[in-house]
């Protein structure tokens, strides 16, 4: 079947299988930041923005994304660099494999809620697993980022 998806601002037309998952479709289209960490919708590594909302691209059919607008970290490099620098300054990126999904969801969170409380941060990002950092360094990065943004 044929679909048309706006990936990171560009219209992409493709012929796909009905059961192609959005994650594989995106990776086939060069969005290699999108990672698969599990098959059970539990890890958050594959988070992308679909029509502005963070979703698990491993659990969405590419077919359903027909006509929608998708953003991956490839399309949000400026935000990734701005916030990512705070993560890197903590050494909290560690292996890095969960970073794209985590940063995607941080971006989504801050678009929904400019000044989240500590509990709101932890709850919003609870679906983003990280095995390296114990989360504390990621949390410091978010707090520092918010503080710096607030100071501006």
């Amino acid at each position: 079947m044929n679909i048309q998806v706006k990936i990171n601002g560009k219209n992409v037309k493709s012929e796909i299988d009905a059961d192609l998952l959005l994650i594989d479709y995106l990776r086939d289209n060069g969005c290699l930041s999108v990672k698969r960490g599990c098959e059970t919708s539990n890890c958050g590594l594959c988070t992308v923005l679909m029509n502005g909302k963070p979703v698990l691209s491993c659990s969405v059919l590419a077919a359903r994304a027909d006509g929608s607008e998708i953003y991956t970290l490839e399309g949000l490099q400026k935000e990734a660099e701005e916030f990512g620098t705070f993560v890197a300054n903590q050494g909290a990126e560690q292996c890095g494999f969960c970073n794209p999904g985590f940063i995607m969801n941080v971006i989504a969170m801050l678009r929904e809620n400019e000044n989240p409380t500590d509990d709101e941060i932890k709850e919003y990002l609870a679906g983003n697993l990280c095995r390296c950092s114990g989360y504390e360094g990621q949390f410091r990065a978010i707090k520092n980022f918010l503080a710096q943004r607030g100071a501006k």
């Binding site: 539990n42 979703v55 698990l56 659990s59 969405v60 709850e123 609870a126 679906g127």
Partner: peptide, 12 residues
């Protein structure tokens, strides 16, 4: 519903 996996999961 707020405990169900994560926001991304609940968005789908």
């Amino acid at each position: 519903v707020r405990h169900i996996v994560g926001v991304q999961f609940r968005n789908s």
